[in-house]
Computed example of a mutant assay.
Amino acid sequence: MNMETALKSAMEIDGAVGVALVDYESGMALGAMGGGRHLDLELAAAGNTEVVRAKMRTVASLQLGDEIEDILITLGKQYHLIRLLTSDRSGSLFLYLALDRGRANLALARHELRRLAAQLTV
């Protein structure tokens, strides 16, 4: 599945507000959909890059011998999901999905984002 199709599919998830494919080495969004005046996806991409980098440093420091699958940030009105793509096929990329907490089913959204990440070809 190409990037545009994956982003469109992510926006079909119940409660989706915005989605971006982000390179966490540069902090740049390679593609984005949704967002609007209440969610600046470019700014969110850069900010969440710092979250990913910090968590990766922590996992390495703890010598857990494991990899991050996803990161969930729970806000009062939104869920923010960060799904890292498998590094051997996609480099340093993650999918970022913002959801309206009142309309989203978190479990189903995580499942769907995992499926999209597995099918995405970059």
Rank of each mutant, 00 (worst) to 15 (best):
V19E: 00
T58H: 14
E25M: 11
D66E: 04
S92A: 10
A16P: 00
G18C: 02
D40V: 04
T58I: 02
R114W: 05
G76A: 05
I13F: 01
A117C: 08
V19R: 02
D23M: 09
A117T: 06
L95I: 01
S92D: 12
T58W: 08
R114V: 01
S61C: 12
R53W: 07
V52M: 06
A6N: 04
A44C: 14
L108N: 11
T74I: 03
D70V: 01
T49A: 06
D88S: 15
A54W: 12
G91S: 08
T5I: 12
G102V: 03
I68S: 07
L108C: 06
E42W: 13
A46H: 07
L95N: 07
G35I: 01
I68Q: 06
A44L: 12
M56G: 11
S9G: 08
R110N: 05
G34M: 02
T58Y: 09
Y79F: 03
R103H: 06
R114L: 05
F94L: 03
V17S: 02
V122N: 05
I68C: 04
T49P: 13
L116I: 01
L81P: 00
V17T: 05
I13M: 01
L93Y: 05
V59S: 12
E67C: 13
Y79D: 00
G47F: 12
R114H: 15
R53T: 07
N48R: 10
V51A: 03
G27R: 07
V122R: 07
A44Q: 14
A6P: 07
S26K: 12
M1V: 15
V19S: 00
T5N: 13
A45E: 05
G31Q: 02
T74L: 03
M1A: 04
I13Y: 01
H111I: 00
M1H: 13
V52W: 02
V122F: 02
A107F: 05
L93F: 11
I82L: 04
D88C: 15
R103W: 02
A109E: 00
T121K: 10
A109F: 01
L62K: 14
G36E: 03
L62A: 10
D66P: 13
E112K: 13
R103C: 07
T49F: 11
S90V: 07
A104H: 10
R37P: 10
G31T: 02
A44D: 05
D14E: 09
G18P: 03
M33E: 09
R101L: 00
A98V: 04
N105Q: 05
Y24W: 15
L72S: 09
R83A: 01
V52S: 01
R115N: 10
S61E: 15
L113Q: 04
D66L: 09
L75M: 10
E12M: 08
V59K: 14
L21C: 05
E112T: 15
A54I: 08
M11P: 02
V59H: 15
A54L: 11
V51Y: 04
T49H: 14
D23V: 03
D88K: 15
Q63P: 13
N48H: 14
E112I: 02
G65E: 09
G15R: 07
A46L: 12
V122A: 06
L93C: 10
L7N: 02
L81A: 03
M3L: 10
